[in-house]
């Protein structure tokens, strides 16, 4: 059941589907990234989440998890538009000279979340890499191999962290390089 006061999260997820239908998945990615960056500017520099040590940040709770799970129950599986965004993002990563910059996509909302997190890290004078993620449904785990390598870790290290987290990030400090 939905009440008007709870409409916005579901409206945004529906909006992603409509946006893909209207403008395609690439434009939808740019649209979500611009929203993430705008919100990051309002929020300012920072790294949201728990810290395993000074450079590893992880989210023990999935942001928007409740909304994503509810939405998935309505559609039973990811809508085709979500899958289209995920595969387009994967293609962009494959063509990029800096694949470590991309999110480890386990859900369509990772585009928004990653652009927000990266921008906030950039405002803090650092770079943030998404090493791995687990979907709020717990059924998909994704890694960014290039980001893991850049962080000097192994996939196994990230897998262990993903047992207690939904997202794992690495903070790179340019001035320490």
């Amino acid at each position: 059941m939905i009440r008007l006061e709870n409409l916005l999260p579901r409206a945004f997820l529906t909006g992603i589907m409509k946006m893909v239908d209207m403008a395609g998945s690439l434009e939808t990615i740019y649209w979500m990234q611009s929203i993430g960056k705008e919100l990051a500017d309002i929020e300012g520099p920072g790294f949201e989440g728990a810290r395993a040590d000074s450079d590893i940040v992880y989210l023990p709770i999935s942001p928007f998890g409740n909304e994503v799970v509810e939405f998935s129950k309505i559609y039973e599986e990811n809508p085709a538009q979500f899958n289209s965004v995920i595969s387009t993002m994967s293609k962009l990563k494959g063509e990029s000279d800096a694949p470590w910059e991309f999110p480890a996509m386990s859900h369509v909302l990772d585009v928004l979340q990653h652009s927000y997190n990266q921008k906030r890290a950039e405002l803090a004078g650092t770079r943030l890499y998404n090493l791995g993620s687990k979907s709020p449904l717990g059924d998909v785990i994704q890694y960014n191999d290039e980001a893991i390598e850049r962080a000097g870790l192994t996939k196994q290290d990230v897998a262990v962290m993903l047992e207690k987290a939904f997202f794992v990030y690495f903070i790179e400090h340019p001035e320490k390089e």
Partner: peptide, 20 residues
Amino acid sequence: QKPLGEFSQRYDVDGNDASY
């Protein structure tokens, strides 16, 4: 201080928002 005037729940030693 954050752009809107808020002080976060917590910061790291460099003054970056580290709130959860």
